[in-house]
Simulated assay, not measured.
Amino acid sequence: MGLFRRNKVWWMTFIHQGQQVRRSTGTTDKRLAEAILGKVRVKIVEGRFFDTLEAKDHTFNDMMDRYLKERSITKAPASRRRDEQCLTHLRSAFGSLNLAEVTPKLLAAYKAKRRETAKPATVNKELGLVRHSFNVAIREWEWCRDNPMQRVCMEKVRNERDRWLSSDEEGRLLAHSAPWLQDIIVFALNTGMRRGEILNLQWQAIDLNRQVLVVMRSKNGEKRTVPLNGRLTDLLKRKASKRAAGSFVFASSAETLFDARNLTRSFRLAATKAALSDFRFHDLRHTFATRLAQAGVDLYKVQRLLGHKTAAMTQRYAHHSPESLREGVLILERVHPQISQNYHNEGGAVGECCASA
């Protein structure tokens, strides 16, 4: 292991596992080059030097190209499009850098800059893609050892919506919707299913005899069973009687998968005609949950119907269920009725007795 100079810059050379390695120290100062060489010796002894070399041999673009081919391709179409949209900004900031050069400092600066033009949720999606890509590069490809996103905080997101349809608004929305859109709206209002789950629903996942359907792949990657009420059973029986050869319940005119963007475009037009302000298709899901909570349905049941993995996601609807909460305190009277009854009948005797004791 030693140093040699090339074009005034000091290089280090050494043999490792039978192969000669030459790397620039990046300095014309011999004393600094010797110090760098000393650090390299320590890293070689600890087995960390070639991890660093590997991270320098692959650029951010290399990592993202491989991620798109191997990991993003397994995601739902909407998630793949989101990854590609995120990379539009990420590549311009980090694309030519090698992985060792993508530091927490640079990522924090990127976050601050993007915050000026993008919403916190958008920034988090981009940073989340970087974090997951580095995790894959560490665990599966062994391209690097450290994930710089471990030391970068995500943005605080306050995007909880509390928008749902009143009965009058529902009537106006349906009145301004085409028949095929009416069916989808009614289906969303009575199942709480997401747009993608509805559009990907196939007849084989429906059991009209048992009045249930199975969401084969939800947002969290798990199956869930959704019961059907009478309104939906009638709707599906009507559609089944006119069913063509296609496998999708809500199909295009060609009996193929319905385009989500066309649905969104038609829904927005209907909402505008119905004079519904700030109302999105996903708010039909909020309406489903809100109506259940207002009717006193237990929040655990709401969680299961929505397919939330944790109760925290469902807690946003808790303030809509005062009668359900009232039931929680009224049960105390049924469990311990005698003490309260004695207190009222004896004019506070129980309290006086306790006080004298």
Rank of each mutant, 00 (worst) to 15 (best):
M1F: 13
F4W: 09
N7K: 14
N7I: 07
K8L: 10
V9L: 03
W11R: 06
Q17I: 14
Q19V: 10
R22V: 01
R23L: 14
T25K: 05
T25V: 15
T25W: 09
G26C: 06
T27Q: 11
L32I: 04
A33C: 07
I36C: 00
L37M: 14
K39G: 15
G47E: 05
D51L: 15
T52S: 04
E54N: 14
H58S: 05
T59F: 05
D62Y: 11
M64E: 09
M64W: 09
D65M: 09
R66V: 04
K69D: 11
E70P: 00
R71G: 01
I73N: 11
A76T: 10
R80P: 03
R80H: 09
L90I: 13
L90N: 03
S92A: 12
N98F: 01
N98K: 03
L99D: 01
E101S: 11
P104L: 13
P104M: 12
A108P: 00
A109C: 00
Y110R: 08
Y110G: 04
Y110E: 04
Y110M: 07
K111A: 09
K113N: 10
K113I: 07
R114K: 07
R115A: 12
R115V: 01
K125S: 15
I138G: 03
R139W: 02
E140A: 03
W143K: 10
D146G: 00
D146V: 10
P148K: 05
M149C: 13
R151V: 00
V152A: 04
V157L: 02
N159A: 08
N159M: 00
E160S: 10
E160F: 08
H176C: 12
D183A: 13
I185F: 08
F187S: 02
N190W: 14
G192C: 09
G196N: 14
Q202W: 01
I206D: 06
I206N: 08
Q211L: 15
V212E: 13
V215I: 14
M216Y: 03
G221V: 10
K223G: 01
T225S: 11
L228T: 04
L228P: 01
N229F: 11
L235C: 04
K237R: 15
K237L: 12
K237C: 06
R238D: 06
S241Y: 01
S241R: 10
R243Q: 07
A244E: 12
A244W: 05
F248H: 06
V249Y: 01
A251C: 06
A251S: 08
A251K: 00
A254P: 00
T256R: 14
R261E: 12
T264A: 15
F267K: 00
T272F: 04
T272I: 09
A274V: 05
S277C: 05
S277T: 09
D278Y: 12
F281E: 08
H282Q: 11
T287A: 10
T290H: 01
L292D: 06
A293F: 02
Q294S: 13
Q294V: 05
V297Q: 02
Y300E: 06
Y300W: 13
V302R: 02
Q303T: 12
L306K: 10
K309C: 05
T310D: 12
M313H: 02
M313I: 10
T314A: 02
R316Q: 08
Y317D: 02
A318T: 01
A318D: 02
L330V: 08
E333Q: 14
V335K: 14
H336C: 12
N345Q: 08
G347S: 08
G348V: 14
G351A: 15
G351Y: 15
E352F: 12
E352I: 09
